[in-house]
């Protein structure tokens, strides 16, 4: 591998990592606040993607304009899921896996019913062009997606660190009971987290659909990716998720240059199993270690 391809791969990897961060954050935030593992996370992203595709093919609008629309469309689902997650019996990690395995199947069936099994992608003209920076060639679509992702992550970061509700969310995610004792409205913080996480996932779906083909069962790979990143970063930790995503993006780009794209899902699944074996503790308790 020449140094030139290396730099090229590194840059593409960083761009990919920003995109991964947006795809993983929703999962990580919900795990942080509720200790529930959302296996339907990837399906939510695919659903957002389908909505984006549907709106885009109907209206021809720029896909980026559809990011907030798809995000907003998932908000009612956020409230429904919060209502369901609250009712989960202990231990929440296991019962949430069951519940969301069911939700995942439900969403997949729903998408299969509405859009059948066909593969869809938002092939918007402005996104497919290439940009030359010096001697490096970057895909404009990836650049835009990464920029959009970074803006979303930055906005979320500011929201969580600089605002009152952000502090409430972080305190709830750190220790729910202690937060409640300190007078923080943990139910409201939980609701906010669900709304944000689902909105983010819906929007991320539109970004996803500009880069990858959508199909109803395609969510599992995204879910596994989000779990891997959450294990690496710890639940609900924004900056770590971004760093872990960039790391994964770079690793992936470098290994794909070497092995070809078809091994990707296999590699993600192997990483998940490896990460689980390496830490072998509860997933939600990552913060205290």
């Amino acid at each position: 591998m020449s140094s030139h391809t290396f730099v090229q791969a590194l840059l593409s990897g960083i761009l990919l990592g920003c995109f991964y961060a947006v795809m993983a954050l929703g999962f990580s935030m919900i795990l942080g606040v509720t200790r529930a593992l959302n296996l339907a996370h990837g399906d939510l992203i695919i659903l957002g993607g389908y909505l984006g595709y549907w709106l885009w093919s109907g209206s021809g609008l720029h896909p980026l304009l559809l990011v907030p629309v798809a995000g907003a469309a998932l908000l009612p689902l956020a409230l429904l899921c919060q209502w369901l997650f609250q009712r989960l019996p202990e231990p929440k990690e296991l019962s949430s896996l069951m519940l969301t395995f069911g939700l995942s199947l439900l969403l997949q069936n729903f998408m299969l019913g509405l859009w059948r099994g066909e593969y869809r992608i938002i092939a918007s003209e402005p996104l497919t062009a290439s940009v030359r920076v010096g001697s490096l060639v970057l895909n404009q679509g990836r650049l835009i997606v990464a920029a959009a992702a970074l803006i979303l992550v930055a906005a979320l970061y500011l929201g969580l660190t600089r605002t009152r509700w952000g502090r409430a969310v972080r305190a709830t995610s750190l220790d729910r009971e202690a937060a409640a004792l300190l007078g923080i409205n943990v139910d409201e913080a939980t609701r906010t987290t669900f709304l944000l996480a689902f909105g983010l996932s819906g929007g991320a779906g539109v970004l996803f659909a500009t880069l990858h083909y959508l199909y109803p069962a395609g969510g599992i790979e995204v879910t596994l990716l989000a779990i891997v990143l959450t294990i690496w970063a710890g639940a609900g930790r924004l900056r770590s998720v971004l760093l872990a995503s960039i790391l994964l993006g770079v690793i992936e780009t470098l290994t794909l240059t070497w092995s070809g794209p078809r091994w990707r899902e296999l590699v993600v699944a192997l990483m998940l199993l490896g990460s689980l074996l390496a830490r072998s503790g509860g997933l939600a308790r990552s913060r205290s270690r």
């Binding site: 296996l39 896996l97 596994l224 091994w263 296999l266 074996l277 509860g282 997933l283």
Partner: peptide, 25 residues
């Protein structure tokens, strides 16, 4: 030996994906 409960459930889920990936490739 190292995983139980939810972690083992996730491990078995990943295991299926690994075999699907192998069969694909």
């Amino acid at each position: 030996a190292r995983l139980s409960g939810a972690s083992l459930a996730l491990g078995t889920l990943a295991y299926t994906e690994i075999w699907r990936g192998i069969a694909h490739n």
